[in-house]
Design a protein around this nucleic acid. Structure first.
Length: 307
RNA sequence: GCCGGGGUAGCUCAGUUGGUAGAGCAGUGGACUGAAAAUCCACGUGUGGGCGGUUCAAUCCCGUCCCCCGGCA
């Protein structure tokens, strides 16, 4: 299949105004907004994950938002599989897929493809994590060096998450992770315009602070209480989102609301900074100021004219 | 007012039997191939509350003053 489906991507750090930009596009094109954010997939935290509001969602179709229970996790490969299908469907319906989100890895997985590694059984993954807790990451890194020296050389011994992943893949597939990575990835069927809405951290920070107040006004605490009734395990993936865990600490562990807000802002800010680092290194991005809606529209228009 | 405990990095604190000090968090930069709002890496000069004194040498000992926290009045 040739790279023929045109899509528009709105990426950028949290709080930069991606949602607003997506709705601005919906005023001009038959847009379907497709989520590319690893937190907005969660069902029980619409406010805290800054999902588009019901009024915003009513502007045009929105997909891949708010479907995942708190106990579950959506890996990048699974995301790419889902999103690919949704993009194809929407395009077939004559709509313009607009991917909106802040998860750089999701965009990469979807747009640039990932190695065709089969899913790793959960028992295998868990057993390595248990072993990592027991023996420490250095021991596992040494074990990895035996079976996959290429990957071991690339990974820092303290990076337990990636070391475990490499070991899991090796055990589950019988091939080293590096073997999978060396194989060519499937070509993307999409012709993507990658727009990155960016603001310097110093300008982003007050917006993030304001957004936390708005979330609280909108009922963030009640939202968390309701989520707690459905899933009381603070270690569940959905609870690890920024805001979720701070509010949990306030509700369940005696953290004052002031402390909660301070931490929430600090962690959000640190996250935005990591996102900026990611997008700074990304190739083929057009960087824009978030309020430059006219430019977003103009670039979208010319992207759609190219055949 | 008295008795204790404290004043060390932006924050919380450690340590130095006297040789001018280091962790966590924060911050800055970076990485990132199925947990990614995750995970990880690098970066540490601060009038050691002020002023005196003892000493070759004081953040550490002594005196004094200031401030905070408990308790007693």
């Amino acid at each position: 299949m040739s790279a023929s489906i045109p899509v528009i991507c709105l990426m950028g750090p949290t709080g930069a105004g991606k949602t607003a930009a997506s709705l601005a596009l919906a005023g001009e094109f038959p847009v379907t907004v497709i989520n590319a954010d690893s937190r907005q997939v969660y069902r029980d935290f619409p406010i805290i994950t800054a999902r588009p509001s019901p009024a915003e969602e009513a502007v045009c179709p929105h997909r891949l938002f708010g479907f995942l229970p708190t106990e579950e996790t959506l890996g990048a490969g699974e995301y790419a599989r889902l999103a690919r299908a949704v993009v194809a469907e929407e395009h077939a319906e004559g709509r313009l897929p607009v991917l909106v989100g802040g998860t750089g890895l999701y965009f990469r997985a979807l747009l640039d493809g990932m190695a065709a590694i089969p899913p790793v059984p959960e028992e295998v993954a868990i057993s390595w994590r248990v072993r990592c807790d027991a023996e420490g990451p250095a021991a596992l890194h040494a074990a990895l060096a035996e079976v996959d020296p290429t990957t071991a050389a690339r990974l820092h011994p303290n990076d337990r998450q990636r070391v475990c992943r490499a070991l899991e893949v090796h055990e589950a597939t019988g091939k080293p992770l590096s073997w999978w990575h060396e194989r060519p990835v499937e070509e993307s069927p999409f012709r993507a315009l990658r727009l990155c809405l960016e603001l310097p951290l110093t300008e982003l920070e007050p917006r993030l602070a304001r957004r936390i107040e708005l979330m609280l006004d909108a009922g963030a605490l009640d939202e968390a209480r309701a989520a707690l009734a459905l899933c009381a395990n603070p270690k569940a993936p959905g609870w690890s989102g920024i805001g979720c865990r701070e509010v949990y600490a306030h509700l369940e562990e005696g953290l004052s609301l002031e402390e909660c807000k301070t931490l929430w802002l600090r962690n959000t800010r640190a996250y935005a900074k990591r996102q900026l680092t990611w997008f700074r290194a990304a190739k083929d991005l057009v960087r824009l100021a978030p309020d430059d809606i006219a430019q977003v529209r103009a670039l979208a228009r010319s992207h759609l004219q190219q055949k």
